[in-house]
Every structure is written in structure tokens, then in C-alpha cells.
Simulated assay, not measured.
Amino acid sequence: MKKEFPVYDICKFSYAQEQDVIIKSLAPYLKAMRKLHFPHRHDFYHIILFTSGAGTHAIDFETFTIAPFHVYFMAPGQVHGWDFEGEVDGYVINFSADFFKSFLYDSQYLEQFPFFSGNVHYSETEISQADHSTAIEIMEKAVLEAEGQGRFKVDLLRVLLLQFFILIAKSDRYSLALDNKGNRNNTVLRNFEKLIEQNYKHQRLPKFYAELLCITPSHLNAICKEFLGASAGDIIRNRIVLEAKRMLINLDFTVTEIAYNLNFEDNSYFCKFFKNQAGVSPETFRRRI
């Protein structure tokens, strides 16, 4: 298998080569990172708040319009790239998956925030005008703290980031998802999505996941349709197609290699599967991208 397109770890972005968090003003950050390959993935959480500029930002093949006070959230593994129009500025936040683990009693605390789910539907939001000044105040404090060497620097950064996440989560954009957090069926759905992430290359039948969740396949299917408007089988297949798309944009991969990586028996079966789900053949998708 040939090398996949770039997956950057947080050390690539760190002058000290050992940081678990990086918070900077966006314009100088972009200038320093001009040699990055696009599109690419990160193995850390990546957040951008724009305060000026225009253009587009693509996350997992969904294209968003860049505008002031729009925020973009990327979970580890997601593919993204951007196309700026003129000069842009704002703030960028990078932090590793382990950054909050020693700080929070609940190791799954961040999972309550929809924008960290890896679901591209929740990857972008606009900060309300009433919260503009609060968001800027938090980010300015975070940038200054990140540049300093104070004794409690790391803990203060954690507190400031949590304030920022909570500010965003309180918006109407995420209210329904948060209201459903305590719902048992929503918990089942979140666990289903985690299991898919771990097993989608080898397990494609809802029955396998239903057994792990201790429910019947029909119950799992009903939950998926209630919350996502799609069957359990569709959700599994969508995850496979997403990974195929992520790999197709790397021209070092042949379609046959992608089929093999995703555990398809042969290339023709993979091409038929992809076309049924995406509406075009893998080769056509690659040419369009």
C-alpha cells in the first residue's frame, strides 16, 4: 500500500515539538504553514475562528463559505482544505486528544459537544453578534497565555478553551443535539457511531453492531431513522464511502489499492458499491475533485 496523503501530528505545528496545545492568531499561523499540503488530515482537534476574510473551507467534501465570526471544528481524521480570497485573520486552536484527559474527571466530557463528533453537519457555526466581544476576549486571553510561561499556563488554557466551547454550545445551532444528550436512544446512537469508526472496514451488517449494543437490529434501525433519517445500514455504508472519498483525493492510491484497503473482495465490487452510494464511479469522483 502506498503512502496516504499527509496526516499531520501536532508536533508539526509546534516550535517546541512537544506541545499538546497551540493557540495563535490566524494570519501569522497561515504564513508559517504555507508549505502544508492541501487537502490533509490532522491527528488532533483543529478549530478556526475567522474574524476577517472570505473564501471557502472544505471539510470532508462539504464546502462552507468563510465569513467573519464563523467557526470551523475538525476532529482527528477529518480531511480539510481551504481556498482564501484575499487576506484572512482570526484565531486557530490545535489540541491533542489527550490534552483534557488529566484535567477533567469525566474523560468523555468533550463528547457532549456536537462539534467534536466528527459529523460534518456540526463542523461549522456562526457566533451570534451578542457573543462577538466575549469570543474575542476569550481568544485574546488564550493567545497571550499561550505565548507566556506562567506557572499555571496549561491549566488556564484549558479553562479558557472550555469557556469558548460552552459559549459556542449554548447557541441555537446545537441546542437540539444537546437536549437529546441524556436520551437513552441518543446514547445508543453515539455508541453505534463509535463502533462503526472502529469496525467499518470489516463489519458492514447492522446485526453485528446491534449485538454489541445489546439491542435488536430492528430497534437499532428505528433509532437511526428517528435521529438521522437513515437506516443503520446506510450509516455504515456512508462511513465506508467517506473513507473511500478521503483516499481517492490522494493520487498515489490506485482504485484497486483503495478497494483492498477497505476490505472489498475485488475492484469491480468496490466500484459498483461506490457508484451506488455516491452516484458516480470512483474515477469520475477523482477527476471532479
Rank of each mutant, 00 (worst) to 15 (best):
S102R: 15
E126H: 13
D252A: 14
F5H: 15
F44H: 07
N94M: 07
H80E: 13
N199W: 06
V7D: 04
A230Y: 03
L36R: 07
L195M: 11
F103C: 11
M247P: 02
F13Y: 11
V188K: 01
I249L: 11
Y209H: 03
E137N: 11
N276S: 08
M74E: 10
E85N: 13
F5R: 13
P76L: 06
G53V: 13
N221A: 00
N250M: 08
T134K: 10
N119K: 01
V143K: 03
G55E: 04
H57G: 10
Q108M: 13
Y8T: 14
Y269I: 08
H42A: 15
I10F: 14
E145P: 04
L220D: 00
A67P: 10
L213V: 00
G279C: 13
A146F: 12
G86M: 09
A232C: 05
N238V: 14
T284W: 12
I23C: 07
G90W: 04
Q17N: 07
N263F: 12
F192L: 02
G279M: 09
L160M: 12
Y105M: 15
F5S: 13
M1Q: 13
D234P: 14
D252N: 06
A32R: 08
F192G: 00
F38D: 05
Y105L: 13
V21K: 05
A130W: 08
L161C: 09
G86D: 01
F152Y: 15
H57A: 13
E193G: 05
A32G: 11
F5N: 09
D98Q: 06
P39D: 12
I23V: 14
D83E: 15
V241Q: 09
L248F: 04
V280N: 06
L228G: 01
Y8F: 15
L178W: 01
R190G: 00
F73K: 03
K194Y: 05
H40M: 10
I258K: 00
L178S: 01
L110P: 00
P28W: 11
V154A: 09
A130T: 15
T63N: 06
R173K: 14
R34G: 15
L213F: 01
A222Y: 00
